[in-house]
């Protein structure tokens, strides 16, 4: 390891919010900030990828790729648009889609929403990533436990509804209507809160 001291930071990286860590990377290529961010997110990205059927070694490699993108693209991070967790999630999601299709160009056919601002921006009311995550949790609390389960399964397990039905021991039609209701409810609550 190069013992490059990247310590012009006035506060220890450990106490910064993830959004601040990304900014520290953007403004001064702060390796300590990156290391902290890596420890926070890489294991969760790996967990996310394994849930979607990626093998653990491939999941670790993809998580590394995603974190390398975070390092390289930090200057493009816009905290008024997305929190750190959302930004990092979309990077990993895109890499996964790309890898799953074994074609580097696959992503060229996605629609890039990353440059778009959120609905009418209110500069004095910029919600921090942490606050936003809190609101998402609040929105999830308005769902029934059954609904939260199907939302989680939809996001983090690439399973056909028929398999979810078998896992939960309920009819396929019930799963379908439960997913439909849960996602509609979640979206309505998010619209109110975010």
């Amino acid at each position: 390891m190069t013992p490059e001291p990247s310590i012009e930071t006035s506060e220890p990286a450990r106490e910064l919010a993830p959004e601040d860590l990304i900014v520290a990377i953007a403004v001064r290529a702060d390796r300590d900030a990156f290391a902290r961010l890596f420890q926070l997110f890489a294991p969760r990205l790996k967990s996310y990828l394994i849930g979607l059927g990626t093998t653990p070694p491939a999941a670790e490699e993809l998580a590394q790729e995603a974190m390398l993108s975070v390092w390289r693209k930090a200057a493009f991070f816009n905290r008024s648009r997305a929190g750190a967790s959302t930004w990092i999630f979309t990077i990993a999601r895109n890499l996964r889609i790309d890898a799953a299709r074994k074609e580097r160009s696959a992503l060229a056919y996605a629609v890039d929403l990353s440059e778009e601002p959120d609905a009418p921006e209110q500069p004095d009311a910029i919600v921090s990533g942490a606050e936003r995550d809190l609101k998402v949790r609040e929105a999830l609390k308005s769902l029934t436990p059954d609904q939260v389960t199907v939302v989680r399964m939809s996001f983090f397990q690439e399973k056909p509804h028929s398999e979810i039905a078998a896992d939960l021991g309920i009819p396929l039609g019930t799963v379908k209507s439960r997913v439909r209701l849960a996602m509609a409810r979640l979206r309505e609550r998010l619209e109110e809160l975010l």
Partner: peptide, 22 residues
């Protein structure tokens, strides 16, 4: 707009996943 809302939900839920061992 709705896709961006779901991305935020998925991002927040991802950061709550139990960490895998690296």
């Amino acid at each position: 707009r709705h896709v961006r809302l779901f991305e935020k939900a998925a991002g927040a839920m991802m950061s709550d996943l139990p960490p895998a061992e690296m």
